[in-house]
Design a protein around this nucleic acid. Sequence first.
DNA 1: TCCGGGCGTGAAAGCGCTCTCAAGCGAAAA
DNA 2: TTTTCGCTTGAGAGCGCTTTCACGCCCGGA
Lengths: 335, 335
Amino acid sequence: MDQVAEAAGVSRATVSRVINGAPSVDAKIREIVQRAIADTGYVPNVAARSLVTRKSNSVALVISEPDRPHNSSFLNRIFTDPYFGRITAGATGALRPHDVHLVIIPTDSTDHHHVIRYLRQGHVDGVLLISSHEQDPLPRQVHELGIPAVVSARPASPLAASFVDVDQRLGARLAAEHLLSRGCRRLATISGPLDIPAGSDRLDGFRSFLANRGLVDVPSIEGDFTRHGGEECARRLLAEHPDIDGLFVASDLMSEGALRAVQDLGRRVPDDIAVVGFDDSSAALDCRPLLTTIRQPVEEMAAEMAEVLMAHIASPGRLPRSVTFQPTLVIRESA
Amino acid sequence: MDQVAEAAGVSRATVSRVINGAPSVDAKIREIVQRAIADTGYVPNVAARSLVTRKSNSVALVISEPDRPHNSSFLNRIFTDPYFGRITAGATGALRPHDVHLVIIPTDSTDHHHVIRYLRQGHVDGVLLISSHEQDPLPRQVHELGIPAVVSARPASPLAASFVDVDQRLGARLAAEHLLSRGCRRLATISGPLDIPAGSDRLDGFRSFLANRGLVDVPSIEGDFTRHGGEECARRLLAEHPDIDGLFVASDLMSEGALRAVQDLGRRVPDDIAVVGFDDSSAALDCRPLLTTIRQPVEEMAAEMAEVLMAHIASPGRLPRSVTFQPTLVIRESA
DNA sequence: TCCGGGCGTGAAAGCGCTCTCAAGCGAAAA
DNA sequence: TTTTCGCTTGAGAGCGCTTTCACGCCCGGA
């Protein structure tokens, strides 16, 4: 920095002002300094900068998933489900204009002391927290740290934290409506894990809408949001209820598996059984037939999370805010 | 820190020594200081620390994948292929004892100026670089930055950089041998992208081994390491060569798709067509029948990358080193 | 011509830590 | 008892940056 200052014939203070875009610098001097910066190849030292500004210009994207060592590790789940890629895409896109980096931190939801440590150490200015399981203590712990945070869904236990979510029940209702409108009458559903709101809310929404229409005792089975789980659930469901003609599967990934099982069992989709998924992720396009599904605008939701987080960082006093997005029905071939 | 020092009745220097585990501190004093640290809830300021140590105690895991906006984004590819989860698992595991954080940075291999900027800013002490495409300029650029780096595979163009790889040709040969030993004689292969060494080397290895055994003109088709691509390639391959009885697919993910296509076309696996994959990732277990495949020890490889990187960081002068792992055949049901 | 106000710039303090260097202390050796 | 050595501790400088504060300069008004 001294080098630059000398090369430009100004003080370090002025160089600093140019770098930080202070408005009070004379245009000519600004230019001279910028040239000097370019000539010397000077790059500010981030450590020194954040020592004084108390800002790191980066936020963490913490993805907390339960580890199931004998089934699939949390990392395998994270790097296998397109959902998290969409979150990442949305968040990075929104953060770029703020010149803020995204630090992705996958973690086992049963053991995240290393995450807490990382956050306490002040590596980041805020946290985007993707955590869904009810018993996951992370949202509360992060909240207690006092670091700005935005959660990816309605926290299972009420928390004075900002969150962004999709109207899960509405999504389930759209699926139910569509199946009914096709003429399906013997409906069933493969839900997500019931210990996560996205799982139970979609199930509730589906069931209660159908109940209003006079359809009760709709069979359901609890899945795990994986392709493999969807396949297995579909097999069991069809074994118990062979006459099903409409199926709502609470995620696209599970739909992929379910679709395979259904067709393996000799049912045609959508003629014998119509299938509606949930997400509208890339997995929907990997399905054969192409999956009719409920779209949640994950990228936009993640972008909104990022914006809300930036607002919290900018003005720490700000009250928590929750934003709910509307899902939409995307009709393709499977229903 | 002053607080802690006062509470413990020592100087800041001593507190610092305790925190950094300097051996020259009296045991009793050490204990007093530690208690004071616990009592005050003191957490060192990382910015101040790295300002003086010039270390950030974190390394980047840069995953560079080409973006294909009309097909699948680089983020979708990354968060859909179990390979990267395994890399992450291996690297974090190896880094933990060093008390070093892993910062995951996915990037579009055609536009990574933001990565370069991040690295130049000194956020990390080193880079684990996952980049395979021949034309990807990132390895060279990182190398020119002078920051310690380890590459995930033999760099396409020779580079004085350390790398860790698996013996690709040997893997392909194991697959060929196994297919031959089953009695298959009309072999074919779905390769990876030929602009990446893992793609071309496996193809070469497969072909040249078979050529030595008198099998020439083995049909091949170029895949893209995705499930969907594998399915499509298998269809096309079988359309042109309906009499194939043994298939080597250069990744498990592609095998999953290929398996589906093969069975859709009425062929039994392994009786009509035996299929051998490559990777031994979780995708191999998602296959029906379970996939016989070539195991590459990705976690161990990533761990080795991390270790080599730490060595480079510890002694910057050190010469580049390359480590090659051996693949093994894992026999399951598909061949 | 002189004075006051504002704008642009520089000097210097200080962010929280590490680490060198010197000093202090006790024990061992003479 | 005195000297010396080694080990532990404290004082203080300095890492590279931002930011306050004060100063100097230029311009407009008197």
